[in-house]
Write a protein that binds this DNA or RNA. Sequence first.
DNA 1: CGCGGACCTGACCGATCGGACAGGTCGGCG
DNA 2: CGCCGACCTGTCCGATCGGTCAGGTCCGCG
Lengths: 214, 214
Amino acid sequence: MTTDRAVRIALVDDHAIVRQGLRSVLDREPDLEVVAEASTAGEAMAVIGRTTPSVVLLDLKLSTGEDSEGLDLCARLTERCPAVGVLVLTTFLDDALVMAAVRHGARGYVVKDVDTTELVRAIRAVARGESAFDSRSAAAMVRSVRVRPEQPTFTEREQKVLELLAHGLSNREIGGRLYISETTVKFHVRNIMRKLDAASRAEAVYEASKMGVI
Amino acid sequence: MTTDRAVRIALVDDHAIVRQGLRSVLDREPDLEVVAEASTAGEAMAVIGRTTPSVVLLDLKLSTGEDSEGLDLCARLTERCPAVGVLVLTTFLDDALVMAAVRHGARGYVVKDVDTTELVRAIRAVARGESAFDSRSAAAMVRSVRVRPEQPTFTEREQKVLELLAHGLSNREIGGRLYISETTVKFHVRNIMRKLDAASRAEAVYEASKMGVI
DNA sequence: CGCGGACCTGACCGATCGGACAGGTCGGCG
DNA sequence: CGCCGACCTGTCCGATCGGTCAGGTCCGCG
């Protein structure tokens, strides 16, 4: 009768051996129950729809070797079944991949060589609706998000201009908003572009956005 | 003789009571040692330079009530002393603030009402050079990073144009790069702007960058 | 076999941009 | 005091953009 209280888990990994290993690890935990397995994205969608797990352990590298298949599955899963939490479980750590997984709806990211207690802890966290990242994955997110140290500094005025620039305002409109002339705005825009080494306002906005200045 | 192996900690919080509370909690852990306290940013910089802690517990809300003071301190700390790990410890959870802290060099973020074991675990993780976020902070990062579900889809061509757009190329240059005419590029740019509801290419790049399309 | 979608191309025009001049004020700092 | 940096203003011009017409091909889907 622990069934209705147990965390229902689906395993999505193209390696049967890995699934078997996970199953044996998780079977030792009385509150965890593996209710489904799948080796491909299509299979996963079908079986998950039937078995309604609360957590999906997903290896992004599926048969095709393309990450996109796993990411795509991740996005479709979280869209169709918002109740299920996707916990990505991969062999290698890739900074960009962590970010990509999160963008596609994953609620956690764990590298396969963490010890089992940490994996189990992550699963329980995701089941509770929380997020779970092992320390290296968290570090990867930090690296992806953190600004570069050589970040140029902007004056207050440039900062304001930059924000309005990003929102698509023309020089004249920015001038009106800041009570300065269009010419002055062009002056600031030029300085901004110079500092960011950008060839156009579009690139300036891109660089500034990347480094979190906006 | 545990001193040279202990994690040296600095407490930066403008409330003496909070510092006292933290100190009593951390004193119970034999491997943790509070070596410095500070209530203002200036004080913190001075005392941290002298006592060389490996972890700084930082409350972003300092006396001024402005987050910027704490963020600024965070940035200066991590710049001047890359060896110290800043673990942000705040009362309230603010999605934007988590991101801001990370951007300014923080290696962890914990809300004050976590239980002490989790706090201690986070401190040890940061001391080891790892990252540490409690589950709600991690969730905040996820929310900040995740794309909105209403994200428009771009055709392959639009995707390419968008990338070159972000790198500051003009329509003509993009056309040259993709072996299509300038007119065609303008056609794609218009569609991109329409999909992103942007008034200019600059705003289009900003929106696309925000949602991780580029 | 039509229909739509993605993709491609042309011409035209006013608005805007990017860059180059040439100025100005104000406060801080040596 | 003179210098510098942030900020402000102007004029001029060619390049580019944003928008609007008008067309076209190719392919998949009903």
